Simulated assay, not measured.
Amino acid sequence: MKRLVWVMAMVAAGAAGSVAAQQAQQPQPLWEAGVAAFAVSTPAYPGSSDRSARVLPLPFLIYRGEVLRSDQGGIGARLFKSERVEFDVGFSGALPAHSKDVAARAGMRDLNTLVEFGPRVKILLASPTATSRVRFELPLRAVMEIEGGVRRQGTTFEPKLSYELRGADPRWGYDVSVAAVFADRRLNRYFYEVAPVYATATRPAFQADAGLVLTRVGVSATYKFNEDVRLFGFVREESYRGAANADSPLMKRRSGASAGFGFTWTLGRSATLAKSAQ
């Protein structure tokens, strides 16, 4: 769902790993660590007319173990990898959206910190050139709410098709992706249901259903300024047309744009190289 801030943290780590280095199959250190900073602006939740903007510094750690991994793909365990198919289990998450800051949700419960955990299959469909590849991902995630404990809030399924490219200038790397997000009824209720107790004259009661949440097109880029400093950024457009809960009074827009940019500064890396290419 609205995982953007955590995704940016992973993009920060990914910028330090760089798409270009992956596609050139260059040997990579087993681990890298440093600091990153980024600014991001995104809808408060899918379909919100209010926005959330953050500027955050954070540390990053990349670890390229054969099983345990922390990189631009997330944090988790890679359980199987062949030339074209990879299977892993990983985490992602979202920072909260407080109802006092979102007009449509005034008086309702906050949207708290969410953590997602589950399996993902990645399939390499094609390598059109030596510096590009087309990949299809099928992640299935259980969503947990963190607030005075841990509560299950549903499940998401987010198939994604991506095209990754190293530019003519090898300092540049690009990624273009198309994705759709589906959620079960429990998670859609968390975002879009209006219980009778929260109904008002302008916010009628609404019962949410399982199904499509959004479709998304995104573009991201990284630039290797030098061996230790990399810049990164992204823009993406989400469409909520055809969403299962498009009629919810909390669905205020039919589309939403997000953007972010930042940098990473690697402060240390291992002399030991990872055993396999990314």
Rank of each mutant, 00 (worst) to 15 (best):
G233K: 02
E164L: 02
Y240K: 08
Q22M: 03
A53V: 11
R109T: 15
H98E: 08
N226Y: 14
V85Y: 13
I62C: 00
E116P: 02
A179P: 03
V235N: 03
V89W: 14
R151W: 03
E147C: 06
R171Q: 14
Q25M: 07
Y174R: 00
R135S: 12
S239D: 11
D184R: 11
D71S: 06
M251G: 08
V219R: 03
F234Q: 04
K252F: 02
V143P: 04
S18R: 14
D247P: 09
Y223D: 08
A142S: 15
V229C: 10
T131W: 03
V134M: 14
E164T: 09
T113D: 04
A12M: 00
A33D: 02
K224G: 15
R51M: 06
D110P: 09
G233V: 00
R241Q: 15
E238T: 05
K252V: 03
D209H: 13
P159G: 08
R69E: 09
H98S: 08
T202K: 05
T129D: 08
L61Q: 08
A183W: 05
A246W: 10
S127R: 15
S258L: 06
G93W: 05
L165F: 05
E145D: 14
S52L: 10
G93Y: 01
P59Q: 06
F191L: 12
A183G: 13
S48D: 06
V35E: 01
A208N: 04
G256N: 06
V121R: 06
A44M: 02
V115L: 14
P249N: 08
F206W: 07
E158V: 10
R109V: 10
G218C: 06
Y163S: 01
T266I: 02
A126P: 06
P43F: 04
V213N: 07
N188E: 11
G154E: 09
S82N: 13
K224S: 13
K122R: 12
D184C: 07
R51G: 07
I62K: 04
G107V: 09
G17H: 05
F234V: 00
E227F: 09
A94E: 04
L114Q: 12
A97Q: 06
L61S: 06
R120W: 02
A44C: 02
R51V: 01
W6D: 00
V19N: 09
V181I: 11
R51Y: 07
L4C: 00
D247A: 13
Q278E: 10
K81D: 15
T222P: 04
E86H: 10
T266Y: 01
L138G: 11
V219L: 15
K224I: 09
Q23T: 03
E137V: 07
P46E: 12
V102A: 09
